[in-house]
Write a protein that binds this DNA or RNA. Structure first.
Lengths: 148, 148, 148, 148
DNA sequence: TTTT
DNA sequence: TTTT
């Protein structure tokens, strides 16, 4: 069994960062991914919900915002719920294992790690940044052993 | 923009092969993918719908059946529709670009390409099989007719 | 059996476009991919050779140049050869099935499809561009001529 | 920057498990991956070296052996070295982030986690098994915070 | 150099 | 050997 999703898309809104009762950070994203242009067809995008946890959540909410391109890797999960009319529904969401920049520094609108002055104090422990001299970065998952 | 899904799961039912009014083959699949076992947790699987077209549809319906493991690669798409109560809904389905065997011959229950007698006349034009001596196979998109 | 490579890296040199005796276009690339920054470590990049064929070769050589970020998807292959000293060697190269932009228009330095005036006459037949309103593009393998 | 390799291949030899001077487990693998059969062509396989660390190394050396199919996910890296003739060479190897079974229990020759009696005491801490009712398993990486 |  |  294997379940892998890799996407590059655009954030439709700012990531929403919340904290669970257990004190675990969660970021909720909504991403638009343009379909490849089919001959003679019109523009079409798909919109997906995605969720990131812990260090990934912090990394994303710190460095990505509405309108930015974001790369994500994770798995596709379903979640069963009951809507307000009492009907059983299934939600699809991408569980993010890793998020990464896909643009050069110039195009990303600044605020990336490594910029000075530092955008925030120190990077959260457990997240390292693939900070090339070219301004590409990458969040490394480090969320094991957490009681989640 | 990039949209990639790679999964290995188990067919919950036989693939359904239909033909569009234009004469294009379509196969609809329902696949169960077990989640990795989380320490102390119980079994959980996610169920996904997937769609394959043309040669991929023929390949899948010929060589895969209920209960078999299947590997698929494609993209995740949404489809908007209105349910019988008149509510707007969104369906999620995987558009399959490629399907492949993930098991050795022995485990796959026979009926693979290369078996004799041939399970069906000749392989559909446009699909080639990666038929290793070990019984692994792979559907290849026949993406050009260049003599290279 | 399954063999998939997905990379985003930077072109170390302009793509080299050649034509085989059979008239098939081939593009050779060399790509630098920064490793994720490991805590306290220094910058490290890996360099890979990659090869694209036909429409993919034309697409890449038309829209990508030295210094640009490029996304590629394909498979990893080995090629045996004998070096000038007569020793047997193995070359590793990525066979590109698909190339895609990973940056917004602004950052890519212009010259993308959809720019006006058109950078070149018409897109090569068989390659379509996923030209989002945001200037993201994607080369699509034109893998069938079915009217679907 | 992004560097992802996903492969399903066959182990050409038993994994070699060693321990670094720091006490970190490393497993070295050699994997054969059949190329898709191209019309009228003959069988061709590519052979790759791969390396797994810590829990991944233990998981692989415990549950995989020569001749078995294995799924791996990781990144492609190069390593520069000088051969015995004093020539500079580059080695290519896959750094494994995750390994997984791709076959049903029946075909894998037994000895999988969940079999009774247990093949080894308890699963190594930090590795969990995706043990579906059908005997599919998956190793989950858990190797952070190690002093490597 | 694996495998059926 | 790329890039900011």
């Amino acid at each position: 069994m294997y379940n892998k999703v890799i996407m590059i898309g655009r954030l439709v809104a700012d990531p929403e960062l919340r904290t669970t009762p257990n004190g675990v950070n969660v970021a909720s994203l909504r991403i638009a991914v343009d379909r490849p242009y089919s001959k003679g067809g019109e523009r079409k995008s798909d919109f997906f919900n995605a969720v990131a946890w812990r260090q990934n959540a912090e990394f994303i909410s710190r460095y990505f915002s509405k309108g930015r391109l974001i790369g994500i890797e994770g798995s596709l999960q379903t979640r069963d719920y009951t809507d307000k009319e009492g009907n059983k529904r299934t939600a699809f969401e991408i569980q993010i294992d890793r998020a990464f920049f896909t643009e050069s520094k110039a195009s990303a609108g600044g605020g990336m790690p490594g910029d000075s002055p530092a955008p925030v104090s120190a990077p959260a422990a457990g997240v390292s940044y693939a900070s090339g001299s070219n301004g590409d970065f990458q969040a490394i998952d480090d969320d094991d052993d957490l009681p989640f």
